[in-house]
Amino acid sequence: MNAEPVMNQDTFPTEPTHRWADDGGVLTEERSPEPDSVEQESVEQESVEQKSVEQESAEQKSAEQESAEPESAELEPAEPQTSMETSSKATSDPVVSGPLLSDAAEQAFLSRWAEIQVGFVEDPPQSVRDADQLIDEIAAALLEAFQARRTDLAADWQDGSPGTEELRLALRRYRAFVGVILPK
């Protein structure tokens, strides 16, 4: 119940994007064809729908950068709701403040992305369809991770009758989780 805002569908997909957008930007400039860069550049284009519209345009790069802006702008309204320095004061509780997906799961998604990106020249329509499908699967995995964490957080205060100190600690964990979702 308290956690409702956290589960807001609009906010959660922006989390990974946001982090990735920074990495990708740097690597694009290098234009070095390393495996990592393929994976991370990828990441720049969070929304497959946008890409499919733009894919024929010669100025894809600028388009991507523009598309990244509105994305982060969307974050702004959500930001003020949370406390100011959430992430800086985040507890180092791995259950709550660790990454949402396991390394293995993340790697699997990223390597599938790399395949999609490399496959574009071979079959552009198929690669866009695959990307759409991948986003769908990533969203499902993230949602599942969210639910698991939320259940874990709720256990702090829903069982028995917690005192104020327990509730304070519980709320701190919630704050750390918000820091994971909205790292800024």
Partner: peptide, 12 residues
């Protein structure tokens, strides 16, 4: 070659 193909996305 694979990297070059991957780079097509950002600069054909």
């Amino acid at each position: 070659w694979q990297h070059i193909r991957g780079g097509f996305l950002d600069d054909p």
